[in-house]
């Protein structure tokens, strides 16, 4: 029954689309760190790549169209870590407040990172 079909936005194969834009960019340090946190925490069993994808899909099409790849990833990794009980929302909120109070730029706020 055609009316039962749910076409989810991320399932793109064969859909109409425009031209392929070939510009490329290198990833910033914070983006590589998001990637590393995903690799490490999923590798240690806190969640799976399927969990990562599930949250990205559930974020919806507008997120895909308006946010960068790692802006979406950081939210999905966070969501999965919250679901796994690794830290609480209050812990995250408090730490983000501290981070944002350290300065104006990523370099100032990231601390040594080491």
């Amino acid at each position: 029954m055609e009316t039962d079909k749910i076409h989810r936005w991320h399932d793109m194969g064969g859909q109409p689309a425009g031209e392929i834009k070939r510009e490329e960019h290198d990833f910033a340090l914070w983006e590589k760190r998001v990637d590393a946190l995903q690799v490490l925490t999923s590798g240690k069993g806190y969640f799976t790549v399927d969990g990562l994808r599930r949250v990205l899909e559930d974020m919806g099409e507008e997120a895909f169209e308006t946010m960068s790849y790692y802006e979406r990833w950081v939210q999905s990794v966070n969501q999965n870590l919250l679901e796994a009980g690794v830290y609480t929302i209050a812990e995250l909120a408090e730490r983000m407040e501290q981070v944002q109070a350290r300065g104006e730029t990523y370099g100032e706020c990231a601390g040594s990172g080491e």
């Binding site: 490329e24 760190r33 950081v74 104006e104 601390g111 990172g113």
Partner: peptide, 27 residues
Amino acid sequence: SGHPYRPDQDHKLTRWQAMEIAMRELL
């Protein structure tokens, strides 16, 4: 590699960057 860098160290901290820093420190 000949590609433009993304805004990073010298741009104003974004919410998502703050989240990455906070998550990393907590972990």
